[in-house]
């Protein structure tokens, strides 16, 4: 049952990703990407990462894609025009290179993880049961990963300042 739902949402994600890279209109691309992001949020729920799934909808499908649509509409790119997809040679090169990459990734994901680094089955589920969904993520975030967390806040500050400097005509 779980596996069936997983494949349903997986196929939705892959199909809408394919539509996203083949639609001519950038707004259609953005909307198909939103469908992919929602399907990925469903996959996160099925993988016992409910909090990450909520963040995926709020941050990705909400904030980031709205930013993309804003820029597309600001630049008035939605109007019909010549396609931006490359010619037959470019398509062939893209398909061949992507196929080679897919083959490599399949070989890589077939590798067995050494059992010494794996947790006993059910450890993460038990942790989430015991601490709750949010606390199970927050505990490592604010203990073991505190320094990266602070660095991320500096990165976001730099991004805000950089975006203002780049997008403003005159300071």
């Amino acid at each position: 049952m779980l596996l069936t739902f997983f494949w349903i949402f997986g196929v939705i994600a892959m199909g809408s990703a394919l539509l996203c890279i083949t639609r001519k209109n950038p707004i259609a691309c953005a909307l198909w990407l939103v469908v992919t992001l929602f399907a990925l949020a469903a996959l996160f729920v099925l993988l016992d990462a409910q909090f990450i799934a909520v963040l995926q909808v709020l941050v990705y499908a909400g904030a980031i894609m709205v930013l993309f649509l804003f820029v597309i509409m600001l630049l008035n790119l939605g109007r019909p025009g010549p396609t931006d997809i490359k010619g037959p040679v470019g398509v062939l090169a893209a398909v061949v290179l992507a196929g080679a990459l897919l083959l490599q990734l399949r070989v890589l994901s077939a590798a067995q993880l050494p059992s010494s680094i794996q947790l006993p089955a059910g450890t993460v589920a038990a942790l989430q049961q015991q601490q709750g969904m949010v606390a199970a993520v927050a505990n490592p975030l604010f203990n073991a990963y505190l320094v990266p967390f602070e660095i991320a806040s500096v990165l976001l500050l730099a991004a805000i300042v950089g975006a203002v400097v780049l997008a403003k005509r005159k300071l």
Binding site: A17, G99, L105
Partner: peptide
């Protein structure tokens, strides 16, 4: 893997 490949494509 398929999603990453589609992104690269």
């Amino acid at each position: 893997a398929v999603l990453f490949t589609l992104g690269v494509a």
